[in-house]
Write a protein that binds this DNA or RNA. Structure first.
Length: 277
DNA sequence: GTTAGGG
DNA sequence: CCCTAAC
């Protein structure tokens, strides 16, 4: 009976949680959340987002984020343990960079590229172990610092229901910081997959990202999944540093090749399971 | 520990 | 990215 209530509260709770947790150290920002998804103010209108002012307003929520200048900064390279012992709503435990200030001009352009351009055996091994790098914060800030607040009509009810309770994972595992793949990394991934296929991520990792501590084979597998998707959508729908079309083409080619390859292998070994039956 | 997929 | 069922 109270399903709808739970739903609404979950959305807001999660929204607040995510914002307060992942962006600490970022700039002050008021993000709008719709159906559990943050609404990017990129170039999409509320309408395009699905929010059309009269219904589903209960699915709208907002989130407030701490100002970077005020955000605590007594954190060292490893701040995974700076969490409050109590069920506080996600304390400021990130490792933001104090000196990092919003570069109002970075909007779409990413300050990312800092990775060597040597494709063959690039492999970054240093600047990756420091979560305090400003990239994350900068990205978020530059991405959308223009606070938009069309949350006027939000039901006071829905808001009041927000548990604002303890955040799961709080004490334990801190969500890893976002690290967009550079074109160089994509190049290495593609090259490795073309050679090893899409079912040996462990090997792909060892082959092309052996010294990239922050890239696990699961990450590579996930990245490949998004690359295939990216290659299929229109260039206009893609985000982040554009990946050379040439690479995306190779992704589709390799994906098609290994897909058939995988199908053939399953044809020869229908699993000895029922050979035993 | 590694795969494979959904969340 | 995370979470995890399967293996």
């Amino acid at each position: 009976m109270w399903k709808s209530t739970i739903h609404a509260s979950n959305i807001l709770q999660r929204a607040v949680m995510e914002e307060v947790t992942a962006i600490l150290g970022g700039g002050i920002r008021i993000g709008v959340v719709f159906q559990g998804k943050k609404v990017r103010d990129d170039n999409k209108t509320l309408l395009q987002t699905g929010i059309s002012h009269d219904y589903k307003l209960d699915a709208l929520g907002f989130s407030l984020e701490p100002n970077p200048i005020q955000a605590p900064q007594p954190l060292g390279p490893d701040c995974r343990s700076c969490v409050l012992p109590y069920d506080t709503p996600r304390p400021l435990t990130r490792c933001p960079s104090p000196a990092t200030v919003v570069h109002t001009g970075i909007q779409q352009g990413r300050p990312d590229d800092h990775t060597g351009t040597n494709l063959n055996n690039f492999l970054e091994s240093d600047h990756d172990s420091t979560p305090s790098s400003h990239y994350t914060a900068l990205e978020k800030i530059s991405a959308n610092s223009r606070a938009l607040v069309p949350v006027t009509t939000v039901n006071a009810e829905a808001l009041s229901v927000v548990p604002l309770r303890k955040t799961k994972r709080s004490e334990s595992t801190q969500r890893r910081i976002r690290r967009p793949f550079s074109v160089a990394e994509v190049e290495a991934l593609v090259q490795a997959v073309e050679k090893l296929g899409t079912g040996r991520w462990r090997d792909v990792k060892l082959r092309a990202f052996d010294n990239a501590k922050h890239r696990t084979y699961v990450d590579l597998k996930d990245k490949w999944k998004t690359l295939v998707h990216t290659a299929r959508i229109s260039p206009q729908q893609r985000r982040g540093e554009p990946v050379p079309q040439e690479l995306l083409d190779r992704v589709l080619t390799a994906h098609a090749y290994w897909s058939q390859q995988q199908a053939k292998q399953q044809m020869k070994q229908p699993s000895e399971t029922y050979l035993l039956l």
